[in-house]
Amino acid sequence: MLRVSDLACARGGFPVLEGVRFEIGPGEAILLRGPNGCGKTTLLRTIVGLQPQTAGAIAVDPDSIAYCGHLNGIKPMLTVAENLEFWAAVYSMRPIDQALEAFGISGLRDRLARNLSAGQCRRLGLARILVTGCPIWALDEPTVSLDADGIELFTRTMRGHLESGGSAIVATHSDLNTDARELDVAGFRVRAKAGTTFDRAFR
């Protein structure tokens, strides 16, 4: 479904990652690991097409990826249902009840989003991914500000998504209780220019 080969990407003009290669098939998930600032977000933003890669190729149908970044894109002056219905209409016309149910926010349906807590906003942001109906999920630290219950709901939803043939690429620091492969992003970091030429000369 998604194949990344020899990908290099940059952030703010500085090369961050190079030689990234992996492949995800239906029902598979991959967890991006690595310390803060190692390029997980940059890699995700490159894969979903928000920024161009500096080298390499990404083989994927861009309309099949749903992206959820650090920010939830929630409009405070709309209700929970209105926020979600908009994305449902843009993507798939799926009913939103199931998505609200999956993240335990059915009771907040008619509440204005500005009155939600950070964790509830996150749940709403993740429910958006569900109504898109996209087969590939690209999630950037989805469990931030979720409580234990929320993390449990998220892992269950993701497992259901994988079992129904979907796939996911998730940048996370928490243990999601899945048997998904892990990819250490730090291993693809661009070395300092001087270092690489030195290595090559003495190899």
């Binding site: 928000l50 309309d63 990826i65």
Partner: peptide
Amino acid sequence: IDYEDGSLDLLATSPI
């Protein structure tokens, strides 16, 4: 506003 709350990222990756 859309840039600050992340909606613009989501709109840019949407089918529109």
